[in-house]
Write a protein that binds this DNA or RNA. Sequence first.
DNA 1: TTTGCTTTCCAAATCGCTTTGAATGCGGCA
DNA 2: TGCCGCATTCAAAGCGATTTGGAAAGCAAA
Lengths: 340, 340
Amino acid sequence: MKLKDLAAELGLSQTTVSRALNGFPEVNEATRQRVSEAARRLGYRANVSARRLATGRSGAIGVTLPLQRSLHFGPHTAEFLSGISERMAQHDIDIVVTPIDADDEVPVFRRLVASKRVDALVLSAPTPNDERIAALTELGMPFLLHGRADNVKIPHAWLDIDNEGAFRRATSHLLDLGHTRIAMINGPEDQTFAIHRARGFRSAMEARGLSPDPQLIGGGRFTDENGFRLAQAFLERRPRPTAFLAGSMMTALGVFRAIRLAGLELGKDVSMIAHDDVFPYLNADNMVPSMSTTRSSIRAAGARIAELLLQMQDGKPPGSIHELWPVELVLRESTGPAPR
Amino acid sequence: MKLKDLAAELGLSQTTVSRALNGFPEVNEATRQRVSEAARRLGYRANVSARRLATGRSGAIGVTLPLQRSLHFGPHTAEFLSGISERMAQHDIDIVVTPIDADDEVPVFRRLVASKRVDALVLSAPTPNDERIAALTELGMPFLLHGRADNVKIPHAWLDIDNEGAFRRATSHLLDLGHTRIAMINGPEDQTFAIHRARGFRSAMEARGLSPDPQLIGGGRFTDENGFRLAQAFLERRPRPTAFLAGSMMTALGVFRAIRLAGLELGKDVSMIAHDDVFPYLNADNMVPSMSTTRSSIRAAGARIAELLLQMQDGKPPGSIHELWPVELVLRESTGPAPR
DNA sequence: TTTGCTTTCCAAATCGCTTTGAATGCGGCA
DNA sequence: TGCCGCATTCAAAGCGATTTGGAAAGCAAA
């Protein structure tokens, strides 16, 4: 069932049918009804390849999967991708995922652009001097950055959460509770967001005339395992840290295990605030004890990015798109006064 | 830079250039060299939409993301998707992810088929009477099932791991160690794989004249939280279970927390074998104590499914594709003799 | 020289849609 | 009546590849 068939069936020209289906104003309302009814009845759907060829737009947006980067395609990416695709599905736009090695990103971009496979890209996990921005700008491929690349001066669209503010507030709160030996289990050190978090941590400490103990700072992947190992090492130091900041709920689980294994009680002997990207399957409220968190839905960010991408396609200049989302601080049972 | 331009540049016809690039035999080797050199130099890449229209193949395969199903788009799906896309990238085939509500799967399939958006689909998380198989078969859309739909008689391609055998062996091993009160934390009950695992568990028990205690069987999502709650409930029963089977590493983490919280020691007071889908960021070996697992890489399964999909496109009949992968049992420190 | 094969290359049709530029029908108005 | 303007509709020209059905060139055999 193609357009021609449908047109023949209706005794109309392809032009009219096409226009009726695509909501052009110059077609009689009665005709439009007739056309869309027939289309539905006969199960007609435009061949996307043909449409794409004719319009010159691919009707797809690309999301790159970091294969060997410090950030894996893990739960965070999955959740983020859900957010994007949920929104895009409503617009009949495909999400094509492209695995990409850290080494040959630019060649892959070049291919993506030349083959007109996608209309825009979503970039994740930026570093401060992210070179992808220049590459894509030069290639003329629209993109939206999830996160920030502080040192890149080229105008570009981004959406980020206020990592610095979140960790500053979390740290301040721990300081208010009397904690001074605070350990920080951050993300991969090269990532902008991790740098921002470290900055927030440091600035809150310094505001009280303290400075972070480098011995109590760790980074790396957001995994249970990494959280566990770092926390275990930190807990062996004397004096022992009385509070932890964890970069993700995964790390927090590992930290929690280490705390238990050391015979300590979370929320009493040791406090913890973790960053919660809001996974539907990992609820800070339901943990025992419930976890205090800095919270920002990564799925919502994905959905919003999809939205902004659509606006960019409608001509909104990328340089005008900058969103910095505030992060909530949600206090629960895992934080308590510092033991004296 | 389009084919026409490239052809003009070379003083050849589009036909010849196209053939040279696509490796047809009837073009002179010297010409081919000249063509591909020029293509490289000028950065020519075929417009995928045009190619797709001309060939009638979309050059993409679809992966559906269950949005509201019992299985979320979580770490498992992410890892699986990595496997697929890794393999497909080598063939310049796009992966398009389509979010899909459990309710309107068939309409979405119908649209996918009619719009010729993808050449084939990957289906995950089947139930025993999975109705998607009939729907897709009827629509003539090739697909490959990750898992099995036992009661569906329509011939179709599938790849699955031997869940039943894995859990039978794991259970047998626990029985060998003297455990008899074994708790099982399974996956979502409607899923075939969970049913198979339950069957393996039961059959191992029955082979020793025992039968599983329904009070010690739980299901649900593969999350830390779910594992924690179920394990905690089970550990309150008397006599207490001395061993756990966990459906995933995520659940296992929760079980582990519950065990610690109950003041018990894993590997001594309580044993556990978890199913490990092999996440790069969650290593059973590095846990403390290290975790005994039934192991099968879900990423490898994804890669293999991609491979099989390619073979299907080359004409291999779907009905002939059935792969049942054995599952390793890897014993580590989390399993020990039953306390007397 | 002709014929018959290969080898190598080409012109033009095709894929199914969008879009341009023009045609048609019809009521209103002078 | 004749012309204009508006609302509809249409025929045909793209979009950029693949592919069909030859054709030209080169060469060996007749």
